[in-house]
Design a protein around this nucleic acid. Structure first.
Lengths: 202, 202
DNA sequence: ATCTGCAAACCGGGGTGTCGGTCTTTAATA
DNA sequence: TATTAAAGACCGACACCCCGGTTTGCAGAT
């Protein structure tokens, strides 16, 4: 792909991560990339097309690889080990990527981004559903294994607990956005997980 | 208060519930209310002032009364009775209010609304924090009472479980928005709560 | 006569996208 | 290798529209 185009995509990424689609203006993207309007529209059909390419290149792809990365390593770990690692790794990964972009976590509203993708990126609902399914299946199989090894209570319904943890994660995540203190998210996760673990361990 | 002003406030409410602040235009509010710009700006200083009055009148107030309504009735109920009632009542109440406004639940994004209030309604962060605190305290005292009566396990940390349930609620809620199937939210809540109850009951 | 409530026309600014034209690189041909 | 044609990258002014907000004037009640 063209080098200029890639530079524009990268710069646009920052803006689309830090503001809703409608509040990002072409002017600021062009100013930042030192490019003219004419130059830009030579490469892209529209602002929305730019958005879709950004999402495609930077967001969709990494969503996929991240979950795969975890699902291959989980099998050797116990529930007590894997769980905090899983919970933490998501946010650590996100944090690293934001650092590369010189963005502070508190300037990025994950849910605004997802809502935007729902609106402007066709088929995102399917992708998201599949992503959630994968996450839950992963949790489910981890739970089942941990029941077999005797780590967790025998009377636990694995699917139910998987859904529970999944929802809990999103709850912590969205509350952190609302509270505007993303930094403490890892502590909160750890604490809530410990409480849950006390309830489910054998 | 003026009758015209109230009509504008009510119409504006619908728009602010169904779209982000920046995407709501004065033109559509004026068109819907059959009013001219001059007329509008006779009553309000700005679009933002309108927004704040709408939030003040319709959203902040009901947020307060709802939680009070519940906190006065909870004392006579067991955990198993109070919990689903509490969880369900929030969404039932919201549903009723949306019906009055001819809005479908799937057209309203609760978190978009909250993020907007964070941006444009001064002091909303404090209000929200207090609201969350109240919710958690309410849950906490319910849990403590239920531990005393022997309904719940003695080894449960009440604050930890309260936080847990609170986060879980928001998780279910935000996932329902993302999945775009708000209708099933009550079933999901019921199911996840049942799973949790099995873990915490004595 | 004055004040209230409102309508209509208007304003500046900023939004996305277009268009004619220029410069640069590449490719083909003699 | 020198010349020429075509393609690609880019510029900047401008068109057009719609935004929130202002100004002016007028009808009717007090």
């Amino acid at each position: 792909m063209n080098e200029t185009k890639e530079r524009i995509l990268f710069i646009a990424l920052k803006f689309f991560l830090s503001k809703p689609f409608t509040e990002v203006t072409m002017s600021e993207i062009l100013k930042e990339s030192g490019m003219s309007k004419g130059g830009f529209y030579h490469h892209f059909d529209s602002k929305e097309a730019l958005y879709c390419e950004v999402v495609n290149k930077y967001l969709i792809g990494s969503l996929m690889t991240d979950i795969e990365k975890f699902s291959t390593t989980k099998l050797t770990l116990s529930f007590a080990e894997a769980m905090p690692m899983y919970l933490g790794s998501i946010f650590r990964l996100a944090g690293e990527k934001l650092k590369e972009l010189d963005l502070k976590p508190e300037d990025v509203n994950l849910y605004n981004i997802m809502f935007d993708m729902m609106k402007y990126y066709k088929g995102f609902d399917d992708i998201l559903n599949k992503f959630h399914e994968d996450e839950i299946n992963m949790l489910k199989s981890l739970i089942e294994k941990s029941i077999e090894t005797g780590e967790l209570r025998k009377d636990i319904d694995s699917l139910s607990l998987a859904n529970h943890i999944h929802a809990l994660m999103h709850g912590i995540s969205v509350l952190s956005v609302l509270d505007e203190n993303i930094e403490t998210i890892n502590d909160r996760i750890q604490e809530l997980f410990n409480g849950l673990y006390r309830l489910v361990k054998a």
